Computed example of a mutant assay.
Amino acid sequence: MSEHVSSAQSAPDGRVADATAENWVDRFCPPWSRPWLRLSRADRPAGTWLLLLPCWWGLGLAMAADPGGPRLADLWIFAGCGLGAFLMRGAGCTWNDISDRHVDGQVARTRSRPIPSGQVSVRGAAGWMVVQALIALAILLSFPAAAIWLGVLSLLPVAVYPFAKRFTWWPQVFLGLAFNWGALLAWAAHAQGFGLPSLALYAAGICWTLFYDTIYAHQDREDDALIGVKSTARLFGENTHAWLAGFLVASVALIGLAVLTVTTGLSLVLCLAGLAGFALHLAWQLRRLDIHDTDLCMRLFRANRDAGLIVALAFGLAGLV
């Protein structure tokens, strides 16, 4: 069992417990900037990728569905999504840490985060959150109107998520609603409107989030039980593999539905090849998963960047042919 303590502790150099050993923040950034970048999870980039990749899925599939093909504006949508994902993930994580500041100090993996460890004050964190959100807003305002309104609406699930684990066993659903919003937004940025395929892609992303974040939540299962925090990891317990298999099938089926409704010819072949690679990657994760091995859970969670990149690359190529 992980040690359960109420006092905040931090590594002597301020590093966060679950940061990668060779992360760029702790290696290259000036010492004064590190607490703020740690607050944004810049030292743990997996989450930024998982927020960004549904955006690129939506953009790639919208391009593949457009008989006019890619446009110059798509380059900015591609880059803007990247910048926006970094900033909004940072703002969202800052909000999450402000909301969870009393919980994080009681969990072994999170007590070294900047707020519970005393590296950043709550007031300072709130200011940092606003700065990141305003820069992200400036990027969003360069997109078409439909995407702008979607971006504004995305703040609702972002605001609710930190509190979800207090009132539901399914907080990962709320994370999925927030993290996959980019599939809708990027589709709308290219198509300047909405489409049923983007909704299928969005639903697929939510199922994918349930898959990878349940794995992630198994790291904190024992501490969460002690402090009364809910999660799908605690809900599923020893039945986790069966549930994850269901989320895998649902995610693959929904992506397949989106692809089949809008692509033909070589674009369809490329998209289906990417989908097959995605399915195999998730199946590999499921086969390796040991919910009692917290280090393995973290490695498998991070591996979902590669799974999502397979789909993003396939959709991107399909949009260019």
Rank of each mutant, 00 (worst) to 15 (best):
M1K: 03
M1Q: 09
S2G: 06
V5G: 13
Q9D: 11
D13E: 13
G14H: 13
R15F: 01
R15L: 01
E22D: 15
V25E: 13
P30H: 12
W32V: 10
W32D: 11
W36F: 13
L37H: 07
L37P: 07
L37K: 03
S40E: 13
R44D: 01
L52V: 01
C55E: 09
W56D: 13
W57G: 14
G60R: 00
L61R: 00
A64K: 00
G68D: 07
F78R: 07
A85F: 02
L87H: 11
R89V: 02
R89Y: 06
G92P: 11
N96M: 11
D97H: 01
D97P: 04
I98G: 01
D100K: 01
H102N: 14
D104V: 01
Q106K: 15
R109Y: 04
R109P: 02
T110G: 10
S112C: 08
R113P: 05
I115L: 15
P116A: 09
S117C: 06
S117D: 05
S121I: 00
R123I: 00
G124M: 00
G127R: 00
W128R: 00
Q132M: 14
A133K: 07
A136T: 03
L140I: 02
S142K: 11
S142H: 11
I148A: 02
W149V: 02
L153C: 13
L155M: 15
V158H: 07
A159S: 15
Y161Q: 08
T168P: 02
W170P: 05
W170R: 14
L175K: 09
G176H: 02
A178I: 00
F179H: 05
N180C: 15
A186W: 02
A189Y: 10
A191T: 13
G193P: 09
G193C: 12
F194E: 05
F194L: 15
G195K: 10
L196F: 08
L199P: 04
A200L: 14
A200I: 05
A204M: 05
L210A: 11
F211Q: 12
Y212R: 04
H218D: 04
K230T: 00
K230G: 01
S231N: 04
R234H: 05
L235G: 07
F236V: 09
G237K: 12
G237A: 13
E238D: 15
N239V: 08
F247Q: 11
L248I: 04
S251P: 03
V252P: 09
V262L: 01
T264K: 12
L266I: 14
S267F: 08
S267H: 06
L270H: 03
L270N: 06
L270M: 12
W284F: 10
Q285W: 02
L289H: 08
T294G: 06
D295H: 12
C297Q: 05
R299P: 07
R302K: 15
R302M: 03
N304M: 07
R305M: 03
D306G: 09
A312K: 01
A312P: 11
F315R: 00
F315S: 08
A318K: 00
G319H: 03
L320P: 08
L320R: 05
